[in-house]
Simulated assay, not measured.
Amino acid sequence: MSDENPSVVVVGGGPAGLTASLFTGRSDMPTTVLDEPESILRRNAHLENVPGFPVGVNSRLFLDMLDDQAERAGVEREQAEVTAVHRDDPTDADEPFVVETADGDAYTADVVVAATKSSPAYLDPLSDDLELDQQGSKTYVSADERGRTDVPGLYVAGRLAAKPHQTVVAAGHGGEVGITVVEDSEVPFYHDWVVPEGYFTGRGREVPPGCEEIDEEERRRREEESIEIMRDYFDEPHPEEPTMHPSVAEDEDEDDE
């Protein structure tokens, strides 16, 4: 892996993948999220256990907000089904990954974050070096607490790492994995933190990598912008209905025939 602005491909555009991409994108690591058309969270009727939303939030709106936030951090987003992740020379950890899709496209990346649900078939080309954990019909990828697998440069986040099937847990683990990717890459980083002007410099310190000092005028500008954007998000009900579980949808289709 290059130690200067390594590229990242995140497989999966749910809370874990988008949150991981937020931190790598904000750290100036070129990041692309590859996602199938639908996150499983879109099946949720109303999301009621995410901090910061006292009476809950529409889960489809929540995903849209995560998506917009990642885009503002410079993350690229592509709709694609990933079919394989491999290295041309599996013995060379400095060689980039090749990420192949069902459409025949191929992406290269120094780092891959696998953040899909428990179906890692696309990692089969790396299976000789991966430890998998089969639990009933689910297959998880073994990793340390920060998402590092036995394959250098490959990380797993959220459900695929056997984390509880909860949005806030997936997002939290995705954030931890994203920060781990940044730290492991040796991109200069201290905290991803925006502080008032003088917080560091007023103590005779330089502003650490990843941090930002802003003056009062800029703080107010950002707050006003956030209020305006949040009002736009919640101005009207989200137009999409929850997606029914595939097995139920199939039964309904059969009843209509």
Rank of each mutant, 00 (worst) to 15 (best):
S2L: 08
D3E: 14
D3A: 14
S7V: 01
V8F: 03
G17E: 06
S21D: 01
T24W: 07
G25T: 00
R26C: 01
M29H: 13
P30V: 02
D35E: 09
P37C: 13
E48G: 11
P54F: 01
V55L: 09
V57N: 05
N58F: 11
R60V: 01
F62K: 10
A70H: 07
A73R: 08
E81Q: 12
V82R: 04
A84C: 10
D89I: 15
P90N: 12
G104R: 14
Y107S: 00
A109Y: 07
V113D: 03
T116H: 15
K117E: 03
S127L: 09
L130H: 08
E131M: 10
K138I: 00
T149G: 14
T149M: 11
D150A: 14
V151F: 14
R159Y: 14
L160G: 00
T167Q: 02
G172M: 06
H173W: 11
E176P: 00
D184G: 03
S185P: 11
P188W: 13
W193Y: 03
V194I: 15
P196R: 06
E213T: 00
I214S: 00
D215W: 00
E217Y: 15
R219M: 13
R222N: 10
I227W: 10
I227T: 10
I229E: 14
R231I: 06
P237T: 04
T243R: 14
S247T: 12
A249L: 08
E250M: 12
E250W: 12
